[in-house]
Amino acid sequence: MPETEKLQGVHRFAVATASVTVLLLMAGALVTSNDAADSVPDWPLAYGRIIPPLVGGIRYEFAHRVFAAAVSVLTLVLAVWLARSGARIARKLGWTALGLIIAQALLGALRVLRGHPAVTATMHATLAQIFFVTVVSLALLTSAWWQRDLSLLDDRGSPRLRPLAAVTTAAVFVQLILGAGFRHGAFGILPHLIGFVVVTFLIVWTCRAVRKRFGQVRDLRRWGIMLQAFLGTQVLLGVAAYWAVAQAMQAVQPSLTYVVITVAHVLVGALTLASSVVLTLSCYRLIRPKAVVALRSAMETTRAGGTRPESSRA
């Protein structure tokens, strides 16, 4: 099989793994929203069987375990495939993804067997996001676009877009941890609300920088637009989720409205992080590092005037 076809195959498989991971995230969010996390008290079996009685909350917990098993198998295949045909970084990332999904399974077991949702469930939710963006990154790194020879761009704005996008991604990730912590009782709502203000500011700043500096570059612009779209959706869902949580505190059981809104909030949060990661990686792929830009500027100045700029003397 030609090399390009092999890569296309592994890329498609990575995209499929990322897509099934979205379903896994949804299944996990359904477990929490339906208050079904403890409906199956044993692990790895369920009620001592491979297939438990599929009633009430057990359906959600069991579906989550089935999706987790499916994603584990897909990740194993992806890691092996990448080890045989991927680039060095993709190979490493493939094994990292496999390590993460194994760690995630063990954390899930810990959540079931030892309880303590504030700690274990928050860690489980955090690791889920790390795994998801790892697989999304793999999908990007194996894409034909990433492999192509691309003409690189100079970023002469300040702050540089590469670190700005990276900081935004880190902030979105922290915000997701704060959200998970609130959902599982580790933190109050205040850190998540502060995180919302910080993340909104950073995303708007990053996307504005993309638009102003690289508005003509489709590969950056589209990810910026997507990130902003997810942010807008997430803000609306956040307000709705806040209302739904307040309602649920008085309710005897989770309502359908509560489940739909909170699950959507978790999913769009994950997609926001994923699009921020893709934008950041695209920035690193397309924009020259600061040092190279500085060197090029120095050379241009030397060519034009024969003098060395201050920065290059140091």
Partner: peptide, 10 residues
């Protein structure tokens, strides 16, 4: 006390 199979059981 909860039944997580039937979340109304409290």
């Amino acid at each position: 006390v909860k039944c997580n199979v039937h979340p109304w059981m409290k």
